[in-house]
Design a protein around this nucleic acid. Structure first.
Lengths: 354, 354
DNA sequence: GTGAAAGCGCTAACAT
DNA sequence: ATGTTAGCGCTTTCAC
């Protein structure tokens, strides 16, 4: 890892790892003042081309790189924003975080991010760590329901925007998809295609989007004058086992559901697997909330309620930087529309009843 | 957003946003010395329960949060690592970055990440920005081919591990999947099932993995004594249009290929679409490098060469932290095995020739 | 056009 | 058990 000049028997003079040259070192080597180095490094005017060259030489010779920690300490702004999401590996959040990053980049800011793993304590821990780093702002996909711990930080000037789910017990900017409307559309679509017994398998009821989607389901059913049996609704964790059990129970009941509405992409994928294992003679209709790759290539294609997660991220980040640029006013709540994409599975009719 | 004490007509004394209380402020309010506050904040011993309580009260009353920029400046270590990848939205990198994050978290470090968008300049810009922040270490999925710009940083003690692709023109740790072996296996599998004319559609030839996969393709063909026609190989960007054109050309040629090997997940998905649009009478065999969700639910299921991207990330991060803990020695290159998962598409025979 | 001095908020080293 | 002093590497201010 260390290289020695060819023909040199002894090691090159020991260079302590972790000790980096500072502006002072560069100044000494170039024979100029500290401030002149600072000017060159930051491209400030007022330096002779000749001195600038000498400083540049010293910089490359020494391998100098400005220490941004010191700079941040002095300037107060970090040019970085924090992103806290639920799970980096969830495909729904990929486009979202990428969009946030693009906006941050356009504003010359770095992205620091972490996953809460849907754990409120971990979310708080992460958020406060980011605050200690003095990020200029935060984009949060909340896992918890009580964000009062953020009040002092926000009062101190940390701009904060919540995405996908609103903040709990605190007033803050939020950018959401229309979970209620999208779900109502989905269920109404199934009803329009003749279904009367429709099941809903959703995420944990504590999660805002899950509750909204359930509300949309109930709204569509009641608007159509249809009853909802307890056995048709299942809320819980989205692990395959739970979803599989729930779906099977609804499909094997005495009066089975003829259509299913899946509350998010993970649920949908598991339901697709369950349906694929059942006799194709009596196909079950399915609509899933969230689009996913290859949904169109399955047979039948999976009808979904699509929300644009990149748009969600972009909108949130835009709002954040507007706040950072001094935009005042009350906390805003932006709700983005969803879109029903019919692909076949949501248009299957119920089995003919004699 | 601002609240006023009830019964107070005038605004509370203007609190400048962005000005946060410091340890000095806390010390003054608690009537103790600065160092005592530091002790309490950092949980160091040597503080009376009573003074500790007074300090804690002052901390919450003032909304104090330690400024980690100052701390970092003083301590020299940032407890953060940087991750530079190609595209946060690519499903292949989700599990990888999540694994890196988990390891970082286990070591009490934060993750700062950015996407290079497969642009070498942007990669360098990002890496150097992270170095300026004095990250303790870097995990890099390189976009460029010349990483000599990193030499001064590495000499200064920034631990660096490359993942998925090796570093260019510099000696550094790398954790790779066995692209060559996996590809050879894939093509040998197709040959074993009777294919003789096999097409390869891969990524840009400058990308290390793409070159290795091409090499594996050639190795398998030549080991079987089969010729390779130029028209059977297409390397280029992975956008759908390019892949679609390449696949169509190979399939519609006078002597069409009877099987395709797709060089990565994006290519595979497009090829699947192309094949789905063609007459099902003469099915074309397909193996894809990289597994992807729902590959088993398509009909036929898609046979793939799977690499464990989470394992790749975990291994890289583990190595990084071992380096940070002082592990010396020459740069290492770790190669993780791949696994062929037969699902149907790779086992289709060539059309019967009379 | 250039540089010296002060200080950002914290921790390390040394008093008391 | 607690406080004081110095200084991390930079930017700000002001003097030359």
């Amino acid at each position: 890892m260390t290289d020695t000049a060819p023909g040199t028997a002894s090691r090159t003079p020991t260079r302590r790892y972790g000790t980096r040259p500072t502006m002072k070192d560069v100044a000494a080597r170039a024979g100029v003042g500290l401030k002149t180095v600072s000017r060159v490094v930051n491209g400030e005017p007022g330096v002779t081309p000749d001195t600038e060259r000498r400083v540049q030489e010293a910089i490359t010779a020494l391998g100098f790189r400005r220490n941004d920690s010191a700079r941040i300490l002095r300037k107060g702004r970090t040019a970085s924003i924090g992103l806290v999401l639920e799970d980096l590996a969830d495909p729904f959040y990929g486009p979202l975080s990428r969009a946030v990053e693009e906006v941050a980049r356009a504003h010359g800011a770095l992205l620091i991010n972490g996953s809460s793993a849907e754990d409120p304590e971990r979310e708080q821990e992460l958020v406060l760590a980011l605050c200690a780093r003095r990020v200029d702002g935060l984009v949060i996909i909340p896992a918890g329901h009580d964000h009062r711990y953020l009040a002092p930080e926000m009062a101190a000037g940390v701009a904060t925007v919540f995405v996908d789910r609103p903040a709990g017990r605190i007033d803050a900017d939020a950018v959401l998809a229309d979970s209620f409307g999208g779900s109502r559309d989905a269920v109404a679509h199934l009803i329009a295609h003749g279904h009367r017994r429709i099941g809903f398998i959703g995420d944990l009821p504590g999660i805002h989007t899950a509750a909204e989607r359930l509300r949309g389901y109930h709204a569509a059913m009641s608007e159509a004058g249809l009853p909802v049996h307890d056995a048709w609704v299942s809320l819980g964790p989205t692990d395959p086992e739970r979803v599989r059990t729930a779906a099977t129970a609804m499909l094997d009941a005495a009066e089975p559901v003829t259509a299913l509405f899946a509350g998010n992409n993970r649920v949908t994928v598991t339901v697709v697997r369950v349906l694929a294992e059942r006799p194709p003679a009596a196909p079950v209709a399915l609509i899933g909330f969230d689009d996913f790759e290859l949904a169109d290539l399955l047979s039948p294609g999976i009808t979904v309620i699509a929300q644009d997660s990149a748009q969600l991220g972009r909108t949130a980040a835009d709002l954040l930087f507007r706040r950072l640029d001094g935009a005042g006013g009350d906390p805003r709540r932006l709700v983005l529309p969803t879109r029903l994409i019919p692909r076949g599975s949501g248009e299957l009719p119920p089995p003919a009843t004699p």
